[in-house]
Design a protein around this nucleic acid. Sequence first.
DNA 1: CGTTGTGAAAGGGTTCACAGCT
DNA 2: AGCTGTGAACCCTTTCACAACG
Lengths: 206, 206
Amino acid sequence: MKNVSENTINRMSIYYRLLTYLARQGTRTISSKSLANVLGIKDSQVRKDLSYFGKFGVRGAGYDVIELSRKILAILGLEKGRKVAIIGMGNLGSALAAFRGFSDFGFDIRAVFDNNPNKIGRTIRGHLCHSMEDLRKFVKSESIEMIILTVPTEQAQETASRAVETGIKAILNFAPVRLNVPAKVRVNNVDLALELKKLSYFAGKN
Amino acid sequence: MKNVSENTINRMSIYYRLLTYLARQGTRTISSKSLANVLGIKDSQVRKDLSYFGKFGVRGAGYDVIELSRKILAILGLEKGRKVAIIGMGNLGSALAAFRGFSDFGFDIRAVFDNNPNKIGRTIRGHLCHSMEDLRKFVKSESIEMIILTVPTEQAQETASRAVETGIKAILNFAPVRLNVPAKVRVNNVDLALELKKLSYFAGKN
DNA sequence: CGTTGTGAAAGGGTTCACAGCT
DNA sequence: AGCTGTGAACCCTTTCACAACG
């Protein structure tokens, strides 16, 4: 399989969301053209994206909604549900701990962590907050593969390094810094202030 | 000025953040090479990005840190501070209302809104929560140009439409739906579950 | 001499267009 | 006939390489 671009993975996730919606509505099959129309993209884009991973359609008929959604779930590595920990129980971390959108899509928040003694031992949005000291133990016992990092910017690098040592595979980083981690660990960044800045630029263009 | 890609705007925001950091540290000038090294990109990329907007450097010497950061601030439309409202005071909206990262970069949260009577009139993270009925009034009186939309998915489209009618120019949308709005209104999407799904795919590749 | 600014080349992603299958 | 899967064309972004300049 050749190298697949991040854009394609983006769209695969979006296809998946639409397909599960269609499945709930009882739609059995769909063509690349209909899919593309709903999403405002080209049908050839849909077919090209899928072609990176295999042949999922039936010529003349289209794609089986349920089958394709299952295939995409497997491609994204979500068939079995990914175990996730959140580190940093500030405003954002707490909000994410309560966010329904995660568990709805196969993600399982297994534990939340902070280094603030006032928070450790307390239940935050249904999750018992643990000490950072216990991270390694949980990563092992709960098979945690991914962490969501919502600590203050100054602590992000150090916390990330500690987490990497425990064996996690991927980090969703909300701090506005480039984390320095081994190549085998994947880091995706969400920078909320940057999103607003971008929006500001495009808002100015009217 | 030719059409500038979203990637370029992304990086301009990142340059700005680094430049303000350097300015605080007392660094006076910097070359495109140093900038690029810190960010893990090519120096030619930095120069090409800047070239879309003008000539800001001195050959042989590099860029004046403070001057360049000011220029980028203007390019992003942030010299005067953008007025922002947040609609939807759930977990995420409340967290964003308290988020320091916004005000640090020229954004000014002017008002927060919800349609839940239990929240209206209460102060949430230092912001008095208003009824959606009052949105139009505030957009006018406070010159609000951008909204952050953190309502539940089912209400996102209707709320966005109401907001557009009041005259706002841009929406930062956290609901996982494609909002249908007039072309003159810019919508940027942040989809947290999608970020995790992408991460899952790349985490699986080890 | 060191670094910018920029045309030109290279690389990558998107769209086209059609052969091939049902 | 209808729709997929895909090589080729097209287009946009990144990188190169160097002339221009302080």
